[in-house]
Amino acid sequence: MSKYGIWPECVWRSPEMNWRAARRITAGIDAGTTSTQAAVLCDGALFSYASLATGVDFNRSATLAMERALEGTDMTVADIHAMGRTGWGSANVPFPAQHIDEVQCHAKGGRFLFGPEVHTVVDLGGQTCKAIRLFDWDRVRDIMMNDKCATGMGRSIERLCELLEIPITEIGPRSLEVQTDPEPVSTTCFAFANTETMGLFGRPEFRAEPLSEAEVYASHLFAVAWRILGTIGKLQPLDVGDIQVYGALGFTGGLAKNPGITRRIERELKVTALESRYDPMLAGAIGAALLAG
């Protein structure tokens, strides 16, 4: 497993919460294509969570995630009243959990992370980008997903970081060091985009000097951000005028932690996305826990 393209795995436990006092304990597992998260909630408050790369086997990753989430507490899976599962590998989760579709989980998780004023939740997952438009009482009004192929999603950024040998946590901030964004790479299809990005390092034909490293990262991430704008924009566009976002915007999923993409989307939409105390990758798991049972 390469070390550049993976978000650092994390485990967290609420220091002050005593789970035994909780009337209802629920858990949620989001077995995604690229990463797996497990979250445990006591009476609707986040008790503990764990996030790790999915690797080859969904079954093993889901079990590992739940074990890490419960590590150090004397809680066992049997103490959990109800469990929800979601994500690409949801069918492989080995616990007696209720399957819930991803859009509902990310909508519910998004409202948990960003509060009730969020109206547009954009999940930047490993293989799909989901733009969800919500009403105040977490009623899903409209959904749009990337048309088909996984172009410009987590998986492609993961491969890019391995190729360019730069940690996935640094590529975003480094790409923001440029004054103005250069011309984006011509495609986000990650097979071609990666080779084109490598090519940008070479001696340019029609330019005085080659692009700086930051400019190359910016060129790639700008193309990915622009592709995601297409999905967000399809949520009920206006007849005339630029893209408009409905209400407050919240990013979830792995790429939400990549400022190189989120800042560029915010700049084009002329809005600032809501921030959350917790890791945005947890939205799916938290949503599954809240909706479970």
Binding site: W88, D101, E102, V103, Q104, Q127, T128, K130, V140, D142, I143, M145, D147, K148
Partner: peptide, 22 residues
Amino acid sequence: FERDTTLPEEETRLRLESFLTV
């Protein structure tokens, strides 16, 4: 959504399931 030579099972099930819930 866009179709191609084959209907990608999981990719389409995910979209269809979310749409049906809405």
